[in-house]
C-alpha cells in the first residue's frame, strides 16, 4: 500500500482495500489511543492550520500526535497570524510545510485542501474544506461501524440534512463500496442531490428515500443522525416542525434490533434526546473517541512510519 507522503484529500481517492488498510492500522493503535504511550512519531511535527472553528477534529489530531510521542504546531487564532495581513493560504502552506512533517488543514473554501496539496512539500490531511470533503470523519465513521456493528450487508438509515452535509456524502460514497443498503431519511427540502444518489446506485449500493424516520427504525443495523441547521430554513416555524420530526428519544427504541447502534458526527443540538445517551444503542461518544486511533493511523501512514 503506497501511502507514504500521500495527501489525504477526499474519500474518492481511496479504494476499499486502502480504507481497510487504514482501519486495520487504527485497530492496532487503539490501545495506545486509550492512554498508552509510544515514541512512534518522536521527533515528528504536525502543523494544525484551522481557519475555521473545530473541537473534535483539531483536538483528536493533537491527541493522536501527542500519544505517539510527536509534537504539534498550532496556527492559533487568525488574529495572531499573518492571515490578518492578507497572506494567502498558498503562501502559508509553502512556509508551514518547511516547518513540519505533515499539515492538517480546515478551510472554508471548497477545494482548498487540493490546492494546498499543490503548494505543500509535506502531506496535507484535509480536516474539512467548506462544504467539500472531510475524509478523516468518514474513516472514523467506518471504523465505528466495523467495530460496533458490521460493514458487509449493512442496513443503515442516514437522517437529517442530506443535501448539504459533507460527512453524509463522503460516508455514503464509502458505504457504496461495501454494497450497503442505505435508507435516506430527510425532509423534502434537504434530500440528497440526485447526482449523488445515481452515483451510489451505480457503485452497487441499494438506496431508498423516505421522509418518515419511525418507519425505518426497526429494520436497520445503524442509525446515523445528523444535525439539521436552522439557517437552511427561511421560516423558523418550519425549522421547528422539521427538527421535531427528526429527533430520536428513548420512546423510539422499543422495536429496534437489539444490536442497532446510533451514531452522530457531533455536535448535536436537538436530534438525539439526552435520555438516549445511557441506552445500549448509543455509540456517538465512542465514535468521537475513534477519531483518535484513526488519526493516529493516518499520521503514521503519511509520515511513513511502520506499526
Amino acid at each position: 500500500m503506497r501511502f507514504e507522503r500521500r495527501h489525504i484529500i477526499s474519500m474518492k481517492d481511496f479504494t476499499r482495500d486502502e480504507m481497510e488498510y487504514v482501519l486495520d492500522r487504527a485497530a492496532k493503535l487503539e490501545p495506545l489511543a486509550r492512554g498508552g504511550r509510544s515514541d512512534l512519531l518522536a521527533g515528528k511535527i504536525l502543523a494544525l492550520l484551522f481557519y475555521e472553528p473545530s473541537t473534535r477534529t483539531r483536538m483528536s489530531f493533537e491527541t493522536a500526535m501527542l500519544r505517539l510521542g510527536g509534537n504539534v504546531l498550532n496556527l492559533g487564532s487568525k488574529e495572531a497570524t499573518s492571515i490578518v495581513k492578507g497572506e494567502t493560504l498558498a503562501d502559508m502552506i509553502r512556509v508551514v510545510s518547511t516547518y513540519s512533517d505533515a499539515i492538517v488543514q480546515r478551510h472554508p473554501s471548497e477545494g482548498s485542501a487540493l490546492m494546498a496539496a499543490e503548494f505543500s512539500s509535506v502531506p496535507i490531511i484535509n480536516g474539512g474544506d467548506g462544504a467539500g470533503h472531510h475524509p478523516t470523519q468518514t474513516l472514523l465513521d467506518l471504523y465505528t461501524i466495523r467495530k460496533e456493528s458490521h460493514l458487509d450487508n449493512l442496513d443503515i438509515a442516514i437522517v437529517g440534512d442530506l443535501k448539504y452535509g459533507r460527512t453524509v456524502h463522503s460516508l455514503t460514497y464509502a458505504l457504496s463500496l461495501y454494497g450497503a443498503n442505505i435508507t435516506l431519511v430527510s425532509p423534502p427540502q434537504l434530500k440528497m442531490p440526485d447526482q449523488i444518489k445515481a452515483d451510489l446506485k451505480a457503485r452497487g449500493a441499494r438506496v431508498r428515500e423516505t421522509e418518515n424516520l419511525e418507519e425505518t427504525l426497526d429494520c436497520i443495523d445503524v442509525l446515523y443522525m445528523t444535525r439539521i441547521q436552522k439557517e437552511r430554513f427561511p421560516d423558523p416555524t418550519e425549522y421547528k416542525k422539521v427538527a421535531g420530526a427528526y429527533k430520536i428519544t428513548t420512546g423510539h427504541l422499543g422495536n429496534v434490533r437489539d444490536s442497532m447502534i446510533i451514531m452522530h458526527p457531533l455536535p448535536r443540538v436537538y436530534e438525539i434526546d439526552s435520555s438516549v445517551d445511557t441506552s445500549s444503542h448509543a455509540r456517538y461518544f465512542e465514535q468521537s473517541f475513534y477519531g483518535v486511533p484513526i488519526r493516529m493511523a493516518l499520521l503514521t501512514i503519511v509520515m511513513g512510519v511502520g506499526v
Binding site: 493560504l89 498558498a90 473554501s109 477545494g111 482548498s112
Partner: peptide, 10 residues
C-alpha cells in the same frame, strides 16, 4: 465558494 474564485494563486 470554490478556492478557484478567491485571491489564491490558482
Amino acid at each position: 465558494n470554490c478556492i478557484s474564485n478567491t485571491k489564491e494563486p490558482v
